[in-house]
Design a binder for these strands. Structure first.
Lengths: 223, 223
DNA sequence: ACCTGAACACCGTTCAAGT
DNA sequence: ACCTGAACACCGTTCAAGT
């Protein structure tokens, strides 16, 4: 079986199996040897299709971000941010075990670059100074990554325990089974409050239009 | 040298060396064998002082959260949240390589439990319904963890590249050297906007005081 | 062209043995 | 009481060899 008529492996097949393995067993559950076994092959064979495990993970991260939508800015910056943030969070929440790796991979993912560019452009077109656009893009990402991170691997289960302990009247079933629901509701609350705050700020900032923003230092950039 | 007059190791010495190694070489840079070598000892010796590597990391995570301050709620919920969020972020930013592990460890960290409890109590005392208190605590954590995560390991450097590419007039030095500064300013922007949005919401919610909140479903919890 | 066996330099963890 | 050597079951990656 050393030379089948058609190859046993393709990059496609490898990536699919790898992502399934991560979803099932966690990021640490993926090893090149286990992945190879899963594909009916020896670990060395994988290296005909990819250079390193890190490259494989980077490719997976890019795949996962396919569903992110940064095209909503034509209907206003608030709508654009909302669509982007929601689709971004959903993409990450679909594969929470991969999230810790996302922060680990630097600027090698073309998808991320394209979206960051679209967001920045959408914000500046709406009148946000460049420096604010940078900070708003970063802030929104904080929210998305933080929310995805928290649902990672069962999440910060400590919270749930606290609430169950403090509020025995609330059914445990509601809190525990609704963990995913609370995550999403919390994210929506955070996003709405954040956008409400930004809308207020936008009114102030819009007066001094097209000032590029020269602030520095660690003080509150709003005041 | 098999039995020195006083032990070569203490839990304290092990933890200090381990945290320094993580700060220097990253989370993957810490191995029990390298740590042992650093301490002038063999790997097996460490297991007289700790059960597993995971336990060591959990202890480190708890240590790192020592500086978190959730005592500010006596001066109002907004002040309490602000102090908590800032001190939390600073604690994480001091050891960014450890942040990915934080989400990995479930509710085994007593510090985290104490703070979550204080935050929840501070919010409900200020008139927030329990369900909102839960979501606000979670939301704030999203912001903190997301911000700390992003600065982890050089962070999402892609952003910086995009901005440098799009805005060649902005000095690269400003953007690259000020990465940490932009991180903190973005965090402050996000926090302020979020709190502004919450303040608006508080006025609405305060009327229906002490209603425990029975909403469910995935719709926007604000409206 | 595609896959493999064997090897290299690593892991975390255990445990009988040394002093 | 404290540390170690040796072992076990793993890693990612390389590379000459097989068909």
């Amino acid at each position: 079986m050393a030379r089948p008529s058609s190859p046993l492996l393709t990059r496609e097949r490898i990536r699919t199996a790898a992502l399934a393995m991560i979803d099932r067993d966690g990021l640490d559950g993926l090893s090149m040897r286990r992945l190879a076994a899963d594909l009916g092959v020896r670990a060395a064979s994988l290296y005909g299709y990819l250079a390193t495990k890190d490259e494989l993970l980077t490719d997976l991260a890019d795949d996962v971000l396919t569903g992110v939508d940064s095209s909503g800015f034509s209907e206003g910056w608030r709508h654009g941010l909302t669509v982007w943030a929601r689709s971004y969070r959903e993409a990450l929440a679909a594969h929470p075990n991969l999230v810790p790796f996302l922060a680990h991979s630097p600027g090698r993912r073309p998808q991320a670059l394209r979206h960051a560019d679209a967001v920045h452009g959408g914000l500046t077109s709406a009148g946000w100074p460049a420096r604010y656009a940078t900070m708003i893009g970063a802030s929104t990402k904080y929210l998305v990554v933080g929310a995805a991170m928290t649902s990672f691997s069962g999440g910060f289960a400590d919270d749930v325990e606290v609430y169950v302990g403090r509020y025995p009247n609330l059914s445990q079933a509601h809190l525990l089974a609704g963990h995913e629901e609370i995550d999403r509701d919390s994210f929506e609350l955070a996003l709405t409050a954040f956008l409400d705050g930004l809308s207020r700020l936008h009114e102030q900032v819009a007066r001094h239009d097209s000032e590029p923003g020269v602030r520095s230092g660690s003080e509150n950039p709003l005041k």
